[in-house]
């Protein structure tokens, strides 16, 4: 396959950036999108050019490190698929593909396609945990959890914190991410003691990071590689209302 990539190049956080076109004449339909970038980078390095910086780690769709906007879609055109799991067979010979970093005030560009997503980490620190004694953790099966609740919690626990929801949202909101954390932990008995503070702290942290407000456009759920649903956002709102009204 012969492809043209137009990639956002930006030397540093405060530098101006622009789209730069690169030809990749030797693309293979079985390559992942990141492997395509590897091939390009190898050539750029050999030619003495600066390779394209992008984030990645597991390359099997579970860590949440990768993620670029491909032709205006976070993680590209394939539903429920991270950039690392997207293969070039989704594209056709001769395609021109635009590759850009996540865009949001809360995610500053570090270099090229890499953005600073530590805002999401600070949201986790504010409430994405349960307090237990480690080392002497109780037997997990000692606390019975009804199957539907376990399913809801598990579905929401699949959020990998990639930030595609923020990138896709026209408001740069982190609502889907935050709602996955709140729904995951607030549904479970293990999360119950901190149920109220969790949702209040997470929302406060989200606001402090400069993420936008949710207007229920649903763009996030289309981009989310893990299929976190709009219903999680309703759950966050319900938990938030309950917590603000001071109900126990």
């Amino acid at each position: 396959m012969k492809l043209t990539l137009r990639i956002w190049r930006q030397a540093g956080p405060a530098e101006p950036g622009r789209m730069v076109a690169y030809e990749v004449p030797d693309a293979n339909p079985d390559m992942s999108f990141l492997e395509l970038l590897d091939v390009l980078n190898e050539r750029l390095t050999l030619e003495g050019d600066d390779p394209v910086t992008f984030d990645h780690d597991c390359r099997e769709g579970i860590c949440g490190a990768c993620g670029v906007v491909i032709n205006g879609q976070a993680h590209g055109p394939r539903e429920r698929t991270t950039t690392c799991q997207l293969h070039m067979r989704e594209f056709s010979d001769g395609d021109v593909i635009d590759v850009e970093p996540w865009r949001s005030v809360a995610f500053g560009v570090v270099k090229d396609l890499m953005v600073d997503r530590s805002g999401l980490d600070r949201i986790i620190r504010a409430g994405g945990y349960i307090s237990v004694n480690t080392g002497s953790a109780p037997e997990a099966h000692a606390t019975p959890v009804p199957k539907p609740i376990a399913d809801t919690a598990f579905d929401n626990a699949t959020c990998i914190g990639c930030g595609a929801c923020v990138a896709a949202c026209p408001n740069g909101a982190a609502m889907l991410f935050a709602s996955a954390k709140v729904t995951h932990l607030n549904s479970l008995p293990q999360g119950a003691p901190e149920r109220t503070e969790r949702v209040l702290n997470i929302v406060e942290a989200m606001d402090a990071e400069g993420f936008g407000g949710c207007t229920n456009t649903g763009e996030c759920t289309v981009a989310c590689p893990k299929g976190i649903p709009m219903d999680s956002i309703a759950t966050l709102n319900r938990e938030y209302l309950r917590a603000s009204l001071g109900r126990k």
């Binding site: 205006g72 865009r103 993420f211």
Partner: peptide, 10 residues
């Protein structure tokens, strides 16, 4: 929160 548009229309 979202001042920069994508070059490729979303």
């Amino acid at each position: 929160a979202r001042p920069t548009k994508y070059a490729h229309h979303q």
